[in-house]
């Protein structure tokens, strides 16, 4: 926000003199798409269905490359989240293999050299697809897929930016723009060359609630899920904020009346 306002003013100044911002340089990221999400605004909440569908998209598509380190399985059952029961969250956790500590013999790998794992419990966090950054880069042509736990708070444009990236593939690059070998064209990404291949296609997932799985739907749902992953307390925060604001406004009113009454004899 702090950057976009001055840059916006600078752009406006440039526009005023007739120089077009778009032609100011190939590779400048387009502004994020203007879509609306249920969690925006002072009374926004997370759409439970979108959270659950988005979790499915993360699980079946994104988690192949992207970790979600900071989210614990027990959070799936928390208030203000996807709304799984504790038993469901436990079952989800148990479906994952997390790194296990040394066994009784002190070994950390099995006979084949594969690191030991155990089923996840509620206290565990989502395990990463790669054991470390170097392995992640090797599997992804040298690019490091970022952890997604707080991705929307770590990018200008937040949810809109991530949504634009996910739905911004598939267009033809403009004449004169060369796409680097091994990368993909996405005009919402700074430089227009993104290392991530288009992750979403129609029906990449089959939604259990029957929602039609278009790319826009999948993107909308996973963006909602990732918004929650980064701000699991958002609903509680806005709810509390409403109460606090009401209290403070009422308190200000009472104090104002006291102030006027008190000072009446001084004026």
């Amino acid at each position: 926000m702090r950057i976009s306002l001055p840059l916006g003013l600078a752009l406006a100044a440039t526009l005023a003199t007739g120089a077009l911002a778009a032609e100011a340089g190939l590779g400048h990221a387009l502004p994020p798409k203007d879509v609306s999400f249920s969690f925006e605004g002072p009374f926004g909440t997370y759409d439970r269905g979108a959270l659950q569908r988005g979790f499915q998209v993360y699980k079946e598509v994104c988690s192949a490359c992207h970790s979600l380190n900071r989210v614990a399985f027990h959070a799936l059952a928390d208030e203000g989240g996807p709304g799984f029961t504790e038993a469901q969250a436990k079952a989800i956790a148990a479906g994952y293999k997390v790194p296990a500590g040394p066994n009784d013999k002190g070994e950390t790998t099995d006979a084949n050299g594969t690191p030991l794992t155990r089923p996840g419990i509620l206290a565990d966090h989502f395990p990463a697809p790669f054991p470390n950054d170097e392995a992640a880069r090797t599997a992804n042509n040298g690019a490091l897929p970022p952890d997604l736990s707080i991705i929307e708070k770590a990018r200008n444009g937040g949810a809109h930016y991530v949504y634009s990236i996910l739905t911004g593939f598939g267009e033809k690059p403009p004449a004169g723009f060369k796409v680097i070998d091994g990368k993909y064209y996405n005009p919402y990404f700074e430089g227009w060359n993104i290392s991530m291949p288009p992750p979403l296609n129609a029906n990449s997932v089959t939604y259990s609630d029957g929602t039609k799985a278009t790319v826009e739907q999948e993107a909308h749902d996973v963006v909602t899920f990732l918004a929650w992953a980064g701000e699991p307390k958002m609903e509680e925060r806005k709810r509390m904020g409403f109460g606090v604001m009401l209290f403070l406004i009422a308190f200000a009113g009472v104090l104002f009346l006291s102030y006027r009454k008190l000072w009446a004899d001084q004026h």
Binding site: R237, G241, V244, L248, L255, S258, Y259
Partner: peptide, 22 residues
Amino acid sequence: VKDGFYLVLFFIVFAGLVFYAP
């Protein structure tokens, strides 16, 4: 009382940031 009143106004702005635009 006067400072208290303006303090509460200040806290309204503060709360606006904390709860709605943290």
